[in-house]
Design a protein around this nucleic acid. Sequence first.
DNA 1: AACGTTTCCGAAAACGTTTCCGGAGATATA
DNA 2: TATATCTCCGGAAACGTTTTCGGAAACGTT
Lengths: 338, 338
Amino acid sequence: MKHITIKDVAKKLNCSVSTISRAFNDKYDIRKETRDHILETAKEMGYSPNPMAKSLLKQCSNQIGVVVPEFINAFFPEVIIGIQEVFIKKGYQVLIMQSGESQITELENVKTLENNMVDGMIISLSLETKNVDYYKKLIQQGFPLVFFNRVSNELETSKVLIDDYKWAFFATEHLIYQGYKKIFHFSGPEGLMFTQNRKNGFIDAHRKHKLPIENDSIITAGLMINDGEREMEKLINENNIPEAIFAVNDPTAIGAMKMLKKHGYKIPEDVALVGFTESRLAPLIDPPLTSVAQPTKEIGRTAALLLLEQIESKGIFVPQTVILNGRLNIRESSMKLK
Amino acid sequence: MKHITIKDVAKKLNCSVSTISRAFNDKYDIRKETRDHILETAKEMGYSPNPMAKSLLKQCSNQIGVVVPEFINAFFPEVIIGIQEVFIKKGYQVLIMQSGESQITELENVKTLENNMVDGMIISLSLETKNVDYYKKLIQQGFPLVFFNRVSNELETSKVLIDDYKWAFFATEHLIYQGYKKIFHFSGPEGLMFTQNRKNGFIDAHRKHKLPIENDSIITAGLMINDGEREMEKLINENNIPEAIFAVNDPTAIGAMKMLKKHGYKIPEDVALVGFTESRLAPLIDPPLTSVAQPTKEIGRTAALLLLEQIESKGIFVPQTVILNGRLNIRESSMKLK
DNA sequence: AACGTTTCCGAAAACGTTTCCGGAGATATA
DNA sequence: TATATCTCCGGAAACGTTTTCGGAAACGTT
C-alpha cells in the first residue's frame, strides 16, 4: 500500500533527490548516463512522481474541470468525449461533474474544482443558473473558463455555440418548402438563450416567406419527453392540430410524436415533425425524425482547444466565440408524401 | 488568481497556523470563542483548506475513481449517477474516466487514479481486458476495489451484478410461453462473463421446456447496432428467418429490428424480439421493445456503499457479491397477436 | 601557473496542510 | 505555599515534489 517516493529511489541509488527529479524532468544539467540509469531503476522500482505534490508546488494541477447539467441524454457525454480527446493527449486529466440542472450543485461543483486547483474549466450552465456573479469574479481573477451551448451573454469568456437562430430558421424553412402552412413551435423554458434564438429563427422564417404566425402557434413546452406529450395532448383535446411542428429539441418532438401516434394520427401525413439537437433516437424511431444535428465531439474539441489556448497564454488573451455548423438531417417525419 | 492560504488567515488574526487548523478541524484543544472568531474571519476572507495539501499529508484524497468502458449508452452514466449520490453525500469527490473498451486505456486510467491517491475505485471492465494481474496486485496491497457488471471471477473483490443467467432464462421462457418455437439468440463477444451467462440462460430455458436448439440458432453477433444489422442481414439472405430472437442487449436487438423492417418483415407478427439491459430507446421505438431492465442507479449506489464499507473498515474485510434484481418489461415486440 | 568556464550534482527552501510536542498560564490539590 | 493538573496555543516536522543557489571538479585559455 505504501507508495514509492523519490526518496526511496534516491536512497537506493545513493544520490540526492534533486538528481532524481532532474532525471525525470529532463533538465539540461544532468549527465545522460546518470539520467538513463536513474530512469531505469526507477521504472524497476515502479516509481512515478506524485502528481499531488507536484501540483502543490507548481500551483497548478494539470487537471481541468468539466461541469455539465446532466449526462442522461447523449449530448453532453459526446461533448465530453471530444474534450477528453484533446486534453488527454496533452497530459491533462479531465474531472467531470454534473450539476443536475441545479444552480446550487453547479456552484458547489465549481468551487470543488477550484479548490482542487484545476487549471481551467469548461462549463455548460444549468437551466436556472444565477451564478453569473461568481463566474464574473472568477473571470476577473483571470481564471480560465470556457462555456458551451448553455452560455450567458453577460460573461466575457470564450464560448462554443452553434447558430441556433440560423438552424431553427432553416428547419422551419424546410417545413415551409414542403408546403406546410399551419406550423407550430414547441418552445423551451424562457430565459435560456437557445430557447430565444430558436424561437426567433422560427418567427423570422415565417416573416421571410410572408406566412402569418397565429397567436397560439408558439407554445412554451419544456425540454423533456413528457413536456412534448403534455402539450400535444392539450392540442388534441382542443382539436387544434397543426400541419407541422418544429420542436425546440428532440425529446419534445418525440413526446409529441408519441401522443399523436397514440391518438391515431399518421406522421408525416397528418402532422410533420422536426426536432433539434439530434439524439441517437432520431434515426431509430418510427418514423425517423428530422432534426438539426450538432457536431457534439467537435464542440468538445473546440472548447478544449480554446481553454488550452487561454491556459497557455498566461496573461493577455482575447475571448473568442466559435460558432460551429450544424446540419439538418431530413428524414421521413417531415417529408410531405404526394 | 492567488489563493488564500491558512497563513494569510493566521497573519490577519495574529495567531499561528496550527490554531487555524484546529479551528477548522474541530479539535478539542481550542477555545470555542477563538474557533468561532477564526471561522468567521476565514469565511469573510474566502478561505477554504487546500485539499491537495491535505491529501499529501494524510496520504489519502477523499476522492474515489470510476472507470467505465464508455458513456455513449445510457447504462453507465446512470450507474455513475447512483455512485455520485452516495459519495457526494459523504464528502467524497468522484473522478470519472472512460476506457473506450480498450484494455490499455483502462490500465492507464487506473494508474492515473492511483497516482492521484484515490481512496478506492469502482470499475467495469473493458471488453478485452487482460489487466487481471494488475488488479490482483492492487487487491493484494489492500487497495479498495469494487467491480460491477463487467467483472472477472479471477478477482476476489466486492462485486455488483444482476443475475444475467436468470433473466436471460426468463426472457427466453417468455418467448416460449408466447408459443414461439424457432428462437434464435444473438450473442455477445466470447470471453465476457455476461455473454456466457445470458447464453446459458437461453439454452437452459430451452432444456426446461424440452425444445431442441438448432445448431445455428446461437449466433455470435456483438454488442452494437450494426452487429445486429449485419447478422440479421445474413439470415435474411440465407432465408433463415426465426420466429423470435433473444438478443444479448438492446442495440443488437434494435439493429436486427431495423434490418427486418427494411426488408418488410412485421414485428412481432413475423419475428418477435427481446433485448437486454433496457435502453432508453426500448419503449420509444416502433414497436416498443421487450427488454430486461437493470436497476442502474441502484447498481451504482450499491457499488458505492460496498466501496465505502471497505474504505472505512481499514483492514479486515470480506468481499461481497451483491446480485440485484432485474425486471422483464414486456412490450409489443414480443407479444404474439392472435 | 593562475584564472575563467563549463558540467554536473547536493543542500535547502518552498508549496499548504495537520499533528506531535512542549510550554505558559490558570486552576485545583495537598 | 508548593505542586500537580488542565486548558489553550505556538513551533516545527512531515507529506513528495521542483527549483534556486552554490560548489566541486574538470577543462580551456592566457
